[in-house]
Amino acid sequence: MLHLISAADLSHSDAVLILDTAEELAQVGDRSVKKLPTLRGRTVVNLFFEDSTRTRISFEAAAKRLSADVLNFAVKGSSVSKGESLKDTALTLEAMGADGVVIRHNASGAPYRLAEWVRGSVINAGDGTHEHPTQALLDAFTMRRRLGRLADLRVTIVGDVLHSRVARSNVALLHTLGAQVTLVAPPTLLPVAVETWPCEVAYDLDSALPKSDVVMMLRVQRERMQAAYFPSAREYSRRYGLDAERMARLPDDAIVMHPGPMNRGMEIAAEVADSPRSTIVEQVANGVSVRMAVLYLLLGGSEPALGGGER
């Protein structure tokens, strides 16, 4: 496996290898020298067609801790009508000798197209409403650190599943890792044919919470109500938001996650986001470790170390 585009492409052993590697690399952040020489002389390009300072910085920190040269390439207002096409951008990256391209794009599937035009590894940092595999990896990493296991963990993902690349990647990866996923959302925000996904679906958050080891709140954009996905922010928040009262229904050791950025007061109340159950700050730190692991395993050797395991 040259690229990491979909979490569904990761076998169980690939996923565990990434998490274990990240666990080792997490120590680097605590050392006096926060850097490893591993990717010295390799070039990693952050190709961002969509603003995401958080994700870009996370990848940049990961690449730099591995001593890679990092080039940031931000393309504003991407569309074929304006400016350079994705293919021309890809050819430019080729000419610069990119060993790895981290791509964030507003169009689903753009990383697959890019992978046809560059020789280096393509790492999907979020494409449209498709996938965000490193987010799912860092979420799994955070769950394993907090709760000690992933097998049979009961994970409830709440919110705008239809438009969420985080949800798609998490469902695929957590299923591979043996967790039991339940999606909770208003039916309008679940894709048609969601019953073909390897997870359960429910509409009622209150009955799902007592059976959850992890509850992951997805960002819900207020604009969705204009397209009649739900009547009002207030109604959404009342039915699907996580406040302190709802949080009390969770088992004692359950954790609350959010991929960020949060809409405080919409899908998550401030007192929940700031509670000890919340892993939101750890998720950021873990993101760097997981992305270091992915960069190392894809770019560190003569060939990638992923994709060799059993499915």
């Binding site: 274990d20 080792e24 190392y296 894809l298 050797g301 003569s302 060939e303 990638p304 170390a305």
Partner: peptide
């Protein structure tokens, strides 16, 4: 660089 990346 001479061998596949390996587990740590």
């Amino acid at each position: 660089r001479l061998r596949p990346a390996r587990a740590l």
